[in-house]
């Protein structure tokens, strides 16, 4: 009754001079409630101990295990095999540097992103350990958290047509990060300052609106709305300065 799953897995170890990129097939019997986390670990433990892939929380929280599953970038840990056909093709995320097999280097990419968008609260205030915290409307806090939910899995970047075509495109994750600070009243940056970061073709104006980011995001972040919001906001910022200059 149990299905036999055929897993076609991308294999290549750049550290092994003998390794050549190829698809390797593993056959595995499906068990109840099987996720790709269970499947891949079984492959590693039972068939191919050197197979490289990344899992960490295995609960859809940390974003480690993004890979291209039958064409779609998604989190392997919350992909249930029962939702997939008998034959499953697994590829590493494009755009990011390959470490080996299904494992890619998202860490370096995202750290560079933090620097680029200055992913932190910009404030002139000093922290006073004796004072009460500054008040904030709970609705605002929840709005910030809504955008803070990004787990940096890289799915949106790998699914992005622009990111595939140009290396310097920031991608939805970075733009969403900017949106997160835009809604945060603690950050004192002005629209003009945000414009300096994202007001060009590597930023919001590079977005071609294919919306694959919105459609693959495993956390269902409101990327479409945020990208549209930023484009209008930055577009208007540019127009304003056209009239206010001198």
């Amino acid at each position: 009754m149990a299905r036999l799953l055929k897993l076609n897995v991308f294999r290549y170890n750049p550290q092994d001079p003998k390794s050549v990129p190829h698809l390797q097939t593993y056959v595995l019997d499906e068990t109840d409630n099987m996720t790709m986390f269970i499947a891949l670990n079984r492959v590693r433990e039972e068939q191919d101990p050197g197979l490289q892939f990344d899992f960490c929380c295995r609960a859809g929280i940390c974003g480690s295990c993004a890979m291209v599953i039958n064409g779609r970038p998604s989190l392997a840990c919350h992909t249930k095999t029962k939702d997939l056909p008998d034959e499953i093709t697994l590829l590493p995320l494009p755009v990011f540097k390959l470490i080996g097999d299904l494992s890619v280097d998202t860490g370096v990419w995202f750290r560079a992103m933090y620097d680029k968008v200055e992913s932190w609260i910009h404030t002139r205030k000093e922290f006073d350990p004796k004072a009460l915290e500054e008040r904030m409307d709970n609705a605002v806090a929840e709005q910030i958290y809504e955008l803070e939910r990004c787990i940096e899995c890289g799915c949106c970047v790998a699914a992005c047509g622009t990111a595939r075509l140009r290396d310097d495109f920031m991608g939805a994750a970075a733009l969403n990060r900017v949106a997160r600070f835009v809604v945060d009243p603690r950050d004192t940056r002005t629209d003009k300052e945000y414009f300096e970061i994202i007001g060009n073709d590597t930023g919001i104006f590079g977005c071609m609106g294919l919306l694959a980011c919105e459609d693959v995001c495993p956390k269902d972040l409101p990327l479409q709305n945020q990208l549209g919001y930023l484009r209008r906001k930055m577009g208007i910022t540019a127009l304003k300065s056209l009239f206010s200059r001198k």
Binding site: E196, G199, N200, F205, G235, L242
Partner: peptide
Amino acid sequence: QPSRRDAYLDW
């Protein structure tokens, strides 16, 4: 100066 070129072109 931050260029506004891309913004104008996009408009």
